[in-house]
Amino acid sequence: MLNQKKLIVSHAPFWHDGSSIRVRSYHIMLAALPAALFGIFTYGMPALGVVSLSISFAIIWELLINKVTRRTISIGDGNAALIGLLFAMLLPATSPWWLVATGTLVAVVIGKHIYGGIGGNPFNPVLIGVAILMVAWKDFFDFNEALVNYDLGFAMVYPLAAAKHLGTSGIEAFSTAGLLLGQHSGGIGATFGLGLILGGIYLIIRGFIRWEISVSFLAGVFVTALFFHISDPSQYASPVFHLLTGYTLMGAFFLATEDSSSPVNFIPMLIYGAGAGVMAVLIRNIGAYVDGVVFAILLMNLINPICDKIRPKSLGKVV
């Protein structure tokens, strides 16, 4: 093959840093670990249970669907485990086992394998799982209710719910430093802001995710929240608050950047990230849901193929 004369080139763009799916999965999991461990540390055994159960179930479903569809067994590439981990990080620590089992089933089977497995999914599998659970069992995603029995020395109120129902006066108890250090309630791995940011920066430096998506997502959230905040400071929370609560940081670094459902070119990445950020705040401030990150990213996943039509002009003659 080496002495082949023909130069075979597929069309642009190219993006390959020499890593395999396995390496990518493990590095992303490594980056997510600080936040996940913090969540387990904060919420104790139930959280550990949810995380382990979620990862094991994701792998089991992947194995089963591989068997049923008679494809090569793909649990070794770590993608299923990654889906399990990220999925668990979005759940409240008190989720019952069947919620985890159904959610990972939906994520792995309907989110990923129905579309032909890894790389073929138009949506982020984790978000498909979470979104369907949110629609079906709203009560279990009400963090106020789910975490009511915890007393961890800080206000056990879900910040976004407080901001939505009470306006800014309801969230005075949350300081920026407290939010960064995870002193607020939320999903198992979604509260420890500092850990998520560190993990995200690690992934960006190592080149596993694109900074364009993360940064434009955060910018979209920030700018939209700023407009709302200026228009009525008593009702809409400050932009920094929006950046550090709910699933924003999870979305920016781990969810919106999912490989096959995000664009590959510079301008599309900016549009995609910013669009998701804007939508997230719009849903939070105007829409019916308390947190809009899940649906915002799914919506932008939808327009991802159109985004990718914006691409640099190819040089020379196109055959």
Partner: peptide, 11 residues
Amino acid sequence: FEPFTFMVQAP
């Protein structure tokens, strides 16, 4: 049993 209400909705 907590019904999986997603099933009776349109999607």
